[in-house]
Structures are given as structure tokens and as C-alpha cells.
Amino acid sequence: MVTGVPEPGPTQPTPRPGRVPTRRPEPGPQPLVVVDARGLRCPLPVIRLAQRAGECPAGAVLEVLATDPAARADIPAWCRMKAQEFLGAQDHTGPDGEHTAYHVRLVG
């Protein structure tokens, strides 16, 4: 079970609006890229993840929101097969139902 893995640093919210960029923007945390795959069945959540990953630079952190139970096994498996870093998963319950947020850091 991957639930309970601590929230990783780079998945913190993007910097507050109006914040002046520092002189050294690198290697600061990249903004979070959200892939909303709620309601999609396997293999679509992983396909959406891979499509977005192809557009993002190394170091980017992707947050995949999914309701498909297969994502719990398949997103870590995708990371292993594609040599990317799986950061963890958190279950969320909200007014629009339950979903899980998976975090992936692109290594390259």
C-alpha cells in the first residue's frame, strides 16, 4: 500500500502570486503539473500521465488525480518501467467523491 507516503517537498503549492523571482531560479522546485484522470479507466490514466510527461522538462513534478483502482499499481509500475521517480499517493475524499492523487517526479 502506497498510501501514507509523506507528502514530498516539490509537491507544495506553486509560489504565491506576485512573488518576485529570486536571483537563482534553479534548482528550485518546479511547479506542479496536474493531470486530471478522474473517471477514466485503465490504461487511460497512465496514457494521460505519459502524454503530459512528454511535454514537461526533467525535474517537473506531475500530480495525477485518478479514481481507477488500477492506477494504484500502474502509476508506480510506469515509473519503474520508464525510470521515473514515484513520490507517493494520497487518498482524498471531497464533495465530488473519492479520488487518489499520485505524485511523479520526472528524472529525464
Partner: peptide, 17 residues
């Protein structure tokens, strides 16, 4: 059940396809 194989999941294997 629309749940993937518990065997594949326990092994950390890809369950789709």
C-alpha cells in the same frame, strides 16, 4: 469487480494490458 489482479498488484507489476 473492475479491480486489477491482486497478484499483479502485490508483485508491483503493471496490471493493465
Amino acid at each position: 469487480t473492475l479491480e486489477p489482479s491482486h497478484v499483479l498488484a502485490a508483485m508491483g507489476a503493471l496490471t493493465h494490458g
